[in-house]
Amino acid sequence: MPKKRQILVIGNNENGCTPELELLAYEVGKEVAISGSVLITGGLGGVMRAACHGAHDAGGLTVGIIPQDDASFANEYCDIVIPSGLGLSRDFLNALASDGVIVVGGGSGTLSEMCAAYMHKKPIAALRKSGGMAAKFADQYLDHRQNVKIVGVDTPQDAVKYILDKITA
């Protein structure tokens, strides 16, 4: 049996996550599940919870890699919880566990995960209209190394399609 594709969805936590971002993240999670891929998130609130909710409602499998050492911190839509106990360092684990990354809004924690994915040359899609780090870095490189271009997309469907095209190429 072939390995399942694993797509990381990152973005705003519960602080700063608007209802519009939650809806967008829900749709991204749903599209990940429809594609037959495993959804990976940081397992907490905001975009992470909304994406897990969308994937869960579409019958997908969700994995939450949380910074705490206690699984009870994970959102209720995580099917598998990995309590890393790594604090903010878990951003690297999230990036390395994924085949590709989708960015919905986001702040400095999201940027940390983007940098980890970028350094490891993971394909990254950023939803342009979601604001935050996604809008700031869409359609550009993070630095002079030009490891991978962060590709701006307009819809959750486009985000998942881009990641799948890159990881199955």
Rank of each mutant, 00 (worst) to 15 (best):
residue 66 I to F: 02
residue 32 V to L: 07
residue 113 E to T: 15
residue 48 M to C: 02
residue 148 V to I: 08
residue 49 R to G: 01
residue 167 I to H: 06
residue 155 T to L: 05
residue 123 P to R: 06
residue 18 T to L: 02
residue 16 G to I: 00
residue 153 V to Y: 02
residue 14 E to N: 13
residue 14 E to G: 06
residue 72 S to H: 13
residue 89 S to E: 14
residue 115 C to Y: 14
residue 8 L to W: 06
residue 15 N to G: 04
residue 114 M to H: 06
residue 134 A to H: 05
residue 15 N to S: 11
residue 68 Q to T: 09
residue 102 I to W: 05
residue 121 K to A: 12
residue 67 P to H: 03
residue 51 A to Y: 04
residue 8 L to S: 11
residue 162 Y to Q: 10
residue 76 E to C: 04
residue 31 E to K: 09
residue 144 H to S: 14
residue 165 D to C: 07
residue 34 I to E: 14
residue 98 S to I: 13
residue 55 A to H: 04
residue 29 G to D: 12
residue 45 G to P: 03
residue 57 D to P: 05
residue 164 L to E: 14
residue 89 S to K: 12
residue 106 G to Q: 05
residue 56 H to Q: 08
residue 138 A to Y: 05
residue 155 T to M: 06
residue 49 R to F: 01
residue 40 I to G: 07
residue 119 M to E: 15
residue 19 P to G: 01
residue 142 L to F: 09
residue 116 A to V: 10
residue 9 V to Y: 07
residue 29 G to Q: 10
residue 45 G to D: 02
residue 154 D to T: 09
residue 31 E to P: 10
residue 132 G to M: 06
residue 62 T to C: 11
residue 44 L to A: 00
residue 3 K to G: 11
residue 150 I to F: 04
residue 166 K to I: 09
residue 20 E to I: 06
residue 127 L to N: 04
residue 74 A to G: 08
residue 103 V to E: 06
residue 160 V to K: 00
residue 136 K to N: 13
residue 99 D to Q: 08
residue 162 Y to G: 09
residue 28 V to A: 05
residue 10 I to V: 15
residue 142 L to I: 15
residue 77 Y to F: 13
residue 152 G to K: 00
residue 165 D to R: 05
residue 122 K to W: 05
residue 96 L to F: 01
residue 119 M to D: 14
residue 152 G to P: 12
residue 133 M to I: 15
residue 57 D to E: 15
residue 67 P to V: 07
residue 136 K to A: 14
residue 115 C to A: 15
residue 94 N to C: 14
residue 62 T to N: 09
residue 59 G to C: 07
residue 7 I to Q: 11
residue 159 A to N: 09
residue 34 I to T: 13
residue 142 L to R: 02
residue 145 R to Y: 11
residue 11 G to F: 00
residue 135 A to W: 05
residue 49 R to C: 11
residue 5 R to S: 14
residue 46 G to F: 00
residue 33 A to I: 13
residue 16 G to A: 00
residue 22 E to I: 01
residue 133 M to G: 02
residue 150 I to T: 10
residue 110 T to K: 03
residue 26 Y to E: 15
residue 32 V to T: 04
residue 120 H to D: 13
residue 28 V to M: 06
residue 57 D to L: 11
residue 160 V to N: 01
residue 137 F to L: 15
residue 74 A to H: 03
residue 120 H to G: 01
residue 29 G to I: 09
residue 124 I to P: 08
residue 48 M to P: 05
residue 30 K to N: 11
